[in-house]
Nucleic acid binder design. Structure first.
Length: 417
DNA sequence: TATTAGGGTTCG
């Protein structure tokens, strides 16, 4: 593991570095000195884009500043990272982070005269047996009643409302999340990311999130959260007693006993201060003329027209009313023919509109979904049809209307199986 | 290195 997570509190590491390593002062990084078993620690003051060398090797350059020598004329040094390690580091190294570099090769820096940094640079790669350790900072979390305009903060919150990620009119996915905490202040966050996986994996009201580096702004007289460059999130099930397992796309994150305790405390607070009785329902319990959230499996899908798309789903229960069947061309219907036929009396047709079409098209047959705020509508009887119930996911994102994909590991999915 | 949206049910 070339890039490891290491947390150092008050100068002492909780996950110690290998004991044979000794800290080396910037001034002692000189040619012809033996740097075996030495490490250098510094704070990232500059990173360059990940590039490829002429021979195809990945290359990543960062500048580390030595905080112990920050008043010296020369207090920074170039770190040149090669190969797989360059790729790994480019993903996790951020401006302002502290890193430890061990197993480096020291060489004369050809750019020292221009950049004013140390006369040597450090070269590291997996092949050379180098290691880079990320030293996690001690994060400070701001309660929601202490947020100030124009700051970037870390915070915890219980999800009071959310819109599952949807395709925005810009270039990114968008998710809107309203949080509360024991200070009883609400914060609505608008989160953007081009990568669906980088937005918080919230499945229900009552989930608990930890946001890092969220920007706070004032909007319409209220504080608002918005994604900033280094935004990262963890999401936890909000159920008291459930395992404390973070859902995240980050490869590297800190999560210690202290954080576990925070989650457990928030769960207990939420249990008595937040109503989580969402409008979830089983198909067996649906009533006409209401909105509800459905956890289900996708059995079939079909294009209908430019502004609507059909999802055929089931949840293992049977809807007590005759259900609407959306007429589509047989050639347009995707899904396993045999299964579609077997489940024909258990699946229901959900017609999704407008902004939900793009996401619906991309869904994989067999995947588990939660569809939020489905509208059930009573279709009237006429000469051709008996009275039936229709399922619509209207356009727009009001009330969190949308579609979320659940992982197989989700508890509600296990129940469904 | 901007923009997206900025919670509060429907055209179908």
């Amino acid at each position: 593991m070339p890039v490891q997570l290491l947390r150092i509190v008050r100068g002492k590491s909780e996950t110690p570095l290998p004991s044979h390593l000794q800290k080396e002062d910037l001034r002692h990084l000189q040619e012809h000195f033996d740097h075996t078993n030495k490490y250098f620690q510094g704070i990232v003051i500059l990173t360059y884009p990940l590039t490829k060398l002429g021979d195809g090797t990945d290359f990543f350059k960062v500048v580390l500043q030595d905080l112990d020598n920050s008043c010296s004329r020369i207090n920074s040094i170039n770190i040149l990272i090669y190969g797989k390690m360059a790729e790994d580091c480019a993903k996790v190294i951020r401006h302002g982070d502290t890193f430890v570099v061990a197993g480096f090769k020291l060489a004369k820096s050809p750019t020292a005269r221009e950049d004013g940094r140390h006369g040597c640079h450090l070269e590291v790669s997996e092949e050379a047996g180098s290691a880079i350790y990320s030293v996690a900072p001690k994060y400070v979390y701001t309660p929601l009643n202490h947020l100030k305009d124009g700051t970037i903060v870390n915070l915890y919150g219980v999800v009071k409302f959310f819109k599952p990620p949807y395709v925005s009119k810009g270039t990114d996915y968008c998710s809107v999340v309203t949080l509360v905490d024991p200070s009883n202040v609400k914060l609505t966050c608008t989160l953007f990311n081009g990568n669906l996986d980088s937005l918080p994996k919230i499945y229900k009201v009552g989930d608990i999130v930890r946001f890092h580096r969220i920007k706070i702004r004032e909007y319409n007289g209220q504080m608002q959260g918005i994604t900033s460059g280094g935004f990262a999130s963890l999401t936890f099930d909000g159920t008291v007693g459930a395992p404390v397992v973070p859902r995240t796309s980050s490869k590297v994150y800190t999560f210690m006993d202290e954080e576990q305790k925070t989650i457990e405390e928030l769960r207990i607070w939420a249990a008595s201060n937040l109503s989580v009785s969402g409008p979830a329902a089983k198909l067996s319990g649906v009533q006409p003329m209401l909105f509800f959230d459905l956890t289900c499996q996708l059995v079939g899908k079909a294009k209908v027209d430019g502004s609507s798309f059909l999802l055929k789903v089931w949840d293992g229960t049977k809807c007590p009313y005759p259900t609407w069947k959306v007429p589509v061309e047989a050639k347009d219907l995707e899904g396993e023919k045999v299964l579609l036929h077997q489940l024909r009396n258990l699946t229901v047709d959900i017609l999704v509109y407008d902004n939900h079409v793009q996401l619906a098209k991309s869904l994989k047959i067999g995947s588990f979904l939660r569809i939020y705020s489905i509208h059930t509508k009573q279709g009237s009887a006429d000469s051709e049809h008996v009275s039936h119930i229709e399922f619509h996911l209207h356009g727009g994102t009001c009330y969190g209307r949308g579609i979320g994909v659940l992982p197989e590991s989700n508890l509600d999915v296990k129940e469904l199986k």
